[in-house]
Design a protein around this nucleic acid. Structure first.
Lengths: 119, 119
DNA sequence: ACAATATATTAGTAGTTGCTTGTATAAGCT
DNA sequence: AGCTTATACAAGCAACTACTAATATATTGT
């Protein structure tokens, strides 16, 4: 990398390649990464898309049929989505209904638009 | 899960929990997952943010200084971002300059907006 | 041609992830 | 109360990831 001053106090010409970029807010990193890593998995992404397709919440039982993993895996995936703030959940009788949060809806829409405009 | 018909031809009442959600386009899944998994990593996300902060492309040498991993790791991370379509790269002399694609700029902006509106 | 710098590639590896299987909890049914 | 269904939790493990270290390639300067 670029180096202006070396140990003995003499200087060397800095690399003229470019100006180093500014810093990044650490909180933004943490928040965004939680979202991105939660969405960035085959099972969880497909669950999100299927939840998005339903109008008024989906119960776990019908999600299980859709993705090709065990009941336990679906439960774990949904928990992760929940703690990442990507879905809400409410209990009704013995069923649990999952719905997208606004965050997720916005991100999925952005991804849709990008796919459309990019051909 | 819900079950209407069983093997011997008799029927059982389907679960009244909800209507099963529609299918998801497999191509959309593949494309989006490539983007999400490429962005969803500490090093690569920070590289993207730093590239976004610069006006006219950043060379690898100054990115190395910013994130806390080896030169090799930065090179590998940038390659991955490139093959995922998240950055462009051009060579100029012995330096390589990376810039965001529109896709990435749009996604980062969406993430910024979500953080702002969600407090 | 040789040395130095900038970046990429390869191989090996520690740590992480996402599953499965088994078990637990909770609600509804008889 | 017992049986069944819906969901969650825990332990174990195979597969994957992202790093480091070493080496290769390309460009520039002497």
């Amino acid at each position: 990398m670029s180096e202006d001053v070396i140990a003995d106090g003499t200087t060397k010409k800095a690399n003229p390649c470019c100006a180093p970029p500014g810093d990044v807010d650490p909180d933004a990193i943490a928040t965004d990464l939680q979202i991105l890593t939660a969405m960035g998995n085959d099972t969880r992404y497909e669950l999100l898309r299927r939840i998005a397709n339903a109008d008024d919440g989906v119960c776990v039982c019908d999600l299980e049929a859709a993705v090709g993993v065990s009941q336990s895996a679906v439960s774990q995936a949904l928990s992760r989505l929940y703690t990442a703030g990507l879905v809400t959940r409410r209990k009704e009788g013995s069923w649990r209904y999952y719905e997208l949060t606004d965050t997720t809806a916005a991100l999925l829409e952005t991804l849709d638009n990008l796919r459309d405009t990019h051909e």
